[in-house]
Design a protein around this nucleic acid. Structure first.
Lengths: 235, 235
DNA sequence: CGGGGCCTTGAACGTCGTCAAGCGATGTGG
DNA sequence: CCACATCGCTTGACGACGTTCAAGGCCCCG
């Protein structure tokens, strides 16, 4: 089932058998992408939504001066561009961080789902709004937290999100990004991100190395980051 | 008509007469709030959505250390918490910046709308996603733009959004926030925001004084801010 | 074997934050 | 009606956090 992981991270609202079947039947095909390949390019008219089945992707914006801001990181079970259904195009791009596999749901199929079930509508809508809540938490991180705390908070978020889909055991997980990516996500420079990562490691909180996160002390890390899962809307 | 301003800022998808009537009929009542009054409190279960008819509101999060991050500023015609329909509660609060008047749409009415018209569904969904796009642009601002540019960008955004609803003539508009609010929105301190505002004024770009923005040179301001309206999804 | 991407570290610099003080406007209560 | 408190704005001095520039090491891949 293509939507298993998605449904695992979105247990509410509860769907009927028919609704689950309708959702599953809405996918047209699957496709694979290589790392760094662009999945969705900004401003290009879109006619389908993309569900991430395997691998990691990033949403990002490139700026005129060469800077780059990562807006979100998606994991298996996430729709990476469900918002393209109402918006018809995106104002940012989406690229693969690892080899990925995705499934496509054509916009007409999304519309058909919204016509047949208000519950499915609510579910899909809700998932785009949880993405938005994560966007807002990133605003808080970048706007109001220090550099080390920002990184710690991101590790906390990824740990919780990955644990729900079985990609973290709560203590360690694969997080296939570079320090440059971490810097672009947190609004720091790669140099400073590197220093803060060292500090987090030396303080016995968390270790990031080679695309792998090892949490040394979860409670201490949570406290340090001021991390609260509320914004993830986990039921 | 309560939804006039909303429809003006959301011309697409195009609605039928019946759909417009159904939308209008979905509002239960209106209410007024005084400045600084909290309209929606975080984590409180919600049963209705709030459309802003008059005045300005802010969405914000208060942090444990006393810092405060403003996440969005809403103007008349905006739904301030339409996302409460799928999410059932918010992870942030909403407060009035000025005396405001709002109209409420109960969640069951929203659900009824989604059951009767896929086009209305798309419209409402779309409006929550434009909010999300603005959230993302703020991530870019705070994460990747310098202090003066951030402020300039915010003024550009407000100018465009207010112009659509007749509250800016393109050169000046009322923007009823304090320098502290500007600082909380842009991730700066009030002191530094003050200095940057002075710089923007002395550079002949824009003047902010007493809750009033006067744009001295729109083209120069746009260029300075790197402002592009794409993320506002203006049709 | 050469090149490039990523990580690491040092040193110097600059943007922005902190602390402090003063000003004007507003409002309130004695 | 004035004394006083509060709030928002402004400015200066200083310090910290984060950036920039630079260099070197490691590893993978062509």
């Amino acid at each position: 089932m293509l939507i298993d992981l998605f449904l695992r991270t979105h247990p509410k609202p509860v769907l009927s058998e028919e609704e689950i079947a309708a959702l599953e039947a809405s996918f047209a095909r699957t496709q694979e992408f290589a790392p760094k390949q662009i999945v969705v390019r900004e401003q290009v008219p879109l006619t389908q939504c993309t569900l991430l089945l395997e691998g990691f992707v990033e949403r990002y914006k490139d700026m005129a001066d060469g800077r780059r801001q990562i807006l979100a990181i998606h994991v298996p079970g996430d729709f990476v561009d469900l918002h393209s259904y109402p918006l018809k195009k995106l104002e940012h791009s989406v690229a693969a961080l690892t080899p990925i596999r995705v499934a496509f749901m054509p916009h007409p199929a999304v519309r058909a789902l919204t016509e047949t079930s208000a519950t499915l509508t609510e579910l899909l809508w809700r998932s785009t709004l949880i993405d938005a809540a994560i966007n807002r938490e990133w605003i808080v991180s970048i706007g109001a937290r220090g550099a080390a705390v920002r990184l710690a908070h991101l590790f906390c978020e990824m740990n919780v999100r990955l644990q729900r889909i079985g990609l973290s055991d709560g203590k360690q997980f694969v997080f296939p990004v570079t320090q440059i990516d971490l810097a672009d996500a947190t609004g720091l420079t790669a140099v400073h991100a590197n220093r803060m990562l060292r500090q987090l490691r030396e303080d016995g909180l968390v270790e990031f190395r080679g695309g792998h996160v090892r949490i040394a002390d979860w409670d201490a890390l949570r406290r340090f980051a001021g991390f609260d899962t509320g914004y993830l809307f986990i039921d």
